[in-house]
Design a protein around this nucleic acid. Structure first.
Length: 476
RNA sequence: CGGGACGUGGCGCAGUCUGGUAGCGCACUCGGCUGGGGGCCGAGUGGUCGCCGGUUCAAAUCCGGCCGUCCCGACCA
């Protein structure tokens, strides 16, 4: 066996290098000519499509409809909500020319669509009978980022943004929480990522929101990643954009809004949470290919093995599995094993002369590496079962990792030591002031990832003042 | 935007210090043998050495500027 040169760096050795190599070797994405732009290749996009399908069904099930709003936002519109401008203006890209002519007003390429959508909502909403408005849009957005990495932070990225309008504050709050739970369910059930949910601290809040809720995941290197957010916008945007309606009491009032989003960053989270030294590991519900049949033939019986492999492939496809048969004659079985492991295919099905003779097939799980021999007749049924087992096991593994890397800190010294040496989530009381939050950030580079919904009383580690639980980590 | 490193066929790199015919591995193409964990042999394709300028008989190599990428710090899904 010769040492392949294009080898994947070990995750533990240099996780950043590992990540970048994996993205390209697994053909998930490739760099574009403009900094921060990337092509999402078919394999990566197939993953995104599965996330889309799942989420979209959940949105529909909670009463939302899809729509599409313009890419270009006039500066004057973007400027209407003061905090919002402050948050997003620095990272806007502007269109200043139309053909050969300078535009009278420059146009932002949407960094997010609150402002342009509010402009329409002003026209569409007049009565309490028009509410609630429950709209989602799938689109791309652009943010002029300093530092970019494929999927995790790209200048242009794909996402969905939900924008809803409600008659009361209570309904809006309820909606924001409902969608947070939709995200959480999707992460647990489909992506097998055990995210924590909670609130953002005021300093980490979305620009213009009253409250921001978040799903935070813990990546394999012990750093946290904000995986989805849901915002209770209160009446901030309605006031700024002059959205009003006549309520049941004949009074003209501002409605309450929410917005919520999840982006292609999620694919980055998937890689970082489940990937290992051999490459990607995809949860079966998300894997574009759930099982791959690898025939093992020798010169004389190539024809027979090929026929059997094709038959098995058909059989598995008929059982509803997304299955692929790797009938390539150029590569050796060993090469194919490595290749499909790199791409994260959940199960490999080996079929060789010995197996055909014995009427069996060999199944090898990507999540554990375990190999099992099944009767050929039972292969499809066993695979269907395995998909479920692997999906559950991957979530369990990720949960175990998260739990092992969630620690309480009793003193500030302990806090610093954990962040420095072990990373992961640190649970500690916080007095709620920006002052201590800032101090921790300066000392340790850790930030408040979220404030849990259920909090314990305690004493702030820095100020000694009474505080309640917050969860800290170094973040992506 | 600050500190550091690096730009040489698609990918990973050597060559740069000490200027003198652009090299290696992988990938790719063709042929043959192979095939249960990245097979072997043979023959090929492909690079104005990031860009612009300067020094020189001669620049991948020396000098200047610019651009880009990666890592570390301030902002974000």
């Amino acid at each position: 066996m010769t040492e392949a040169v294009e080898r994947l760096t070990k995750k533990s050795e240099d996780s950043s290098k590992w990540y970048l190599q994996l993205v390209r070797m697994a053909k998930l994405a490739d760099y574009g000519p403009v900094r921060g732009t990337f092509a999402i290749r078919p394999y990566g996009f197939a993953i995104w499509e599965r996330i889309q399908q799942d989420l979209d069904a959940r949105f529909k099930a909670t009463g939302h409809q899809n729509a599409y709003f313009p890419l270009l936002i006039p500066e004057s519109l973007l400027m209407k909500e003061a905090e919002h401008v402050e948050g997003f203006a620095p990272e806007c890209a502007w269109v200043t020319m139309g053909g050969d002519d300078e535009l009278e007003e420059r146009l932002a390429i949407r960094p997010t669509s609150e402002s342009i959508i509010c402009d329409f909502y002003r026209k569409w909403i007049h009565s309490y009978r028009d509410l609630p408005v429950l709209i989602n849009q799938w689109c791309n957005v652009l943010r002029w980022e300093m530092v970019t990495r494929p999927f995790l932070r790209t200048a242009e990225f794909l996402w969905q943004e939900g924008h809803t309008v409600h008659a009361t504050a209570g309904e809006a709050r309820e909606e924001a929480l409902r969608m947070l739970n939709v995200y959480r369910d999707c992460f647990y059930e489909v992506l097998a990522i055990p995210v924590l949910t909670g609130m953002k601290s005021p300093s980490e809040r979305f620009a213009g929101a009253v409250e921001t809720f978040t799903c935070e995941g813990l990546m394999g290197d012990g750093r946290a990643l904000q995986a989805a957010t849901s915002h209770d916008l209160g009446q901030n945007f309605a006031r700024a954009f002059d959205i009003t309606f006549l309520d049941e009491n004949q009074e003209r009032v501002h409605p309450y809004q929410t917005s919520w989003g999840l982006s292609t960053r999620t694919i980055g989270a998937l890689i970082l949470v489940h990937g290992d030294d051999r490459g990607l590991r995809l949860p079966p519900k998300l894997a574009p290919t759930q099982a791959v049949v690898v025939p093992i033939w020798r010169g004389k019986n190539k024809g027979e093995v090929r026929r059997e492999a094709e038959a098995l492939h058909r059989e598995l496809a008929e059982a509803g599995l997304r299955v692929e048969a790797d009938l390539d004659e150029e590569h050796s079985p060993g090469w194919k094993f490595n290749e499909h492991e790199l791409r994260g295919v959940p199960v490999r099905v080996e079929l060789g002369p010995k197996d055909i003779e014995k009427g069996q097939a060999v199944l090898v799980r990507r999540d554990t590496g375990e190999k099992e021999f099944v009767e050929r007749r039972a292969a499809a049924r066993r695979l269907v079962e395995l998909m479920d087992e692997i999906q559950k096991n991957m979530l369990r593994q990720a949960e175990a990792f998260r739990d092992e890397n969630t620690r309480r800190a009793e003193t500030y010294e302990e806090f610093k030591e954990i962040i420095e040496e072990k990373r992961g989530f640190v649970v500690a009381p916080w007095d709620g002031t920006e002052e201590t939050e800032q101090r921790i950030k300066e000392d340790t580079k850790a930030t408040i990832r979220l404030v849990p919904f259920e909090r314990e009383e305690g004493k702030d580690l820095i100020s000694g003042r009474p505080g309640k639980t917050a969860i800290f980590a170094r973040a992506y």
